[in-house]
């Protein structure tokens, strides 16, 4: 099964990104094989609606679980529509959070922040 995590760089030694929608990369981690894949988040520099596009990327990755420190309302709707389960990360270490998830040590993410839409452009 695949797990998605927003990360700062294309390395397991990198950190969990503080932002979901604007994260530069997503780690796609395979719990069966332990293999890792880093995909670029095309929404990182979006003018608006970054969370929606980032969520679309995660959905398309076939991940079934998302580990993230926070998530906006719109992104959460997209992720939920795909049946992806969301869990709240406990620190900024990628490995710690994957280990915690495997040990059922993460809580479901349930508080979603409002978006920042319409703050720029026309």
């Amino acid at each position: 099964m695949l797990i998605a995590v927003p990360v700062d760089d294309k390395s397991m030694k990198s950190k969990v990104c503080v932002s979901f929608g604007r994260a530069p990369y997503f780690l796609i981690y395979d719990t069966d094989s332990g293999s890792t894949d880093f995909i670029t988040n095309p929404a990182a520099m979006s003018q608006g609606g970054a969370g929606i596009k980032a969520a679309q990327t995660v959905v398309d990755s076939q991940a079934k679980v998302l580990l993230t420190p926070r998530c906006g309302e719109n992104a959460a709707q997209v992720v939920a529509a795909a049946g992806i389960k969301m869990f709240k990360t406990v620190n900024d270490s990628i490995q710690d959070n994957i280990d915690a998830y495997k040990g059922s040590g993460l809580s479901p993410l349930e508080d979603f922040h409002p978006g920042f839409h319409g703050q720029g452009g026309q």
Binding site: S46, G48, G49, A50, I52, Q56, A81, H117, G121, Q122
Partner: peptide, 21 residues
Amino acid sequence: CKFNALAYVDQRLMIFEEVCH
């Protein structure tokens, strides 16, 4: 969509009206 007001998930198109310009 430049503003990412649309998503396609689970065979359905989602429209985010407040993001649409």
